[in-house]
Every structure is written in structure tokens, then in C-alpha cells.
Amino acid sequence: MALNLWVTLIAVWLIANASLDTQVVVTGLVLATLISLALSRFSNAYADIRVTPQVLIHSGLYLLVFAQELVRANLHVARLVFSPRIDIHPGIVEIKTRLRSRTGRMVLANSITLTPGTLVVDIDGDSLFVHWIDVEAEDLEGATRAIAERFERHLSVIYG
């Protein structure tokens, strides 16, 4: 069902317009209905989103972990860039995810890209190929633990 998409679209529309005029609300309702009906035939990405108290708690925890990692990633990049000699040991490693849903994997890949020294290059099934600016572990288990573990703990509850 496209209900999740519909709710998201309405929320975005109302925030972007910052008004509750009848005209604005009616236009938003019509547009959101048309768009979610049209898109629900092509994609079920939004159907993976469930809303339960547990999911909300872990979404909050996940946001905290993510914000912290984002700041660390930027300090790491700034330190690298402003240092007189760039001393890096880059490489592409493989990691395995235990997330089943495609939306969950997408969120995981995006999170990995935005966090310190890692960039997802390719996804093949449950394998993610990650470019790592300073390779700490070349083996599958070590790399998975270092890169994906802290996100997966929360994402596996949110998306299953």
C-alpha cells in the first residue's frame, strides 16, 4: 500500500508551504494522492517502513549514532586534508550485511558513505564493496564488524 508514501508527501508539502490554508491543504491532498497512486505501481520501497514503538525508539538511537559518526567523519576528513603530508592506505573491502529488506540495505549503504573514511562502491546481493580510506581489516568479518555493525544493530530492528 502507498499509505506511507502518501503520509510522507503530505508532511513534506505542509512543511514546505508552512501554512494551513484550505487552498494549500486541498492542493496537497490531491497531489499526494495522485503521486502515491502513480508511484505505488512501480515501487514498493515505502512498504518496508513499519511504525511501532520499538521502531521509533531505534530510529531515534540510530539518528544519534549517525549524527555522531557524521561529525567524526568530517573531523577525520578535515584532519587528513589539512595535514602537510597525506598518509593514507586506501583499498576496497567486502562486507556482508544481515539486513533483508532492500530499503534497509539502501539506508545502510547511505550511512556507510556518510561516515568516517568509507564509501560504498557497489552492492551485490548481501555483499557491499566499500572503499576505505585507511584499511584496518582486509578480511570479511573484521571489515563487517568495523564498518557496518554499529548501524545494523538499529537498522535490523527498524527494517528487519
Binding site: 557524521l70 567523519a73 568530517n74 576528513v77 578535515a78 587528513l80 586534508v81 593514507i88 586506501p90 576496497i92 558513505t113 556518510l114 561516515t115 568516517p116 573514511g117 568509507t118 564509501l119 562502491v121 572503499h131 580510506i133
Partner: peptide, 12 residues
């Protein structure tokens, strides 16, 4: 690859 890394994170 390393350029993409710095370009994405710091600009975000």
C-alpha cells in the same frame, strides 16, 4: 575514489 570520499563527507 579518495576525492569522492572527501568531497561527499565534508560538503554534507
Amino acid at each position: 575514489y579518495n576525492r569522492i570520499q572527501t568531497g561527499t563527507k565534508a560538503s554534507t
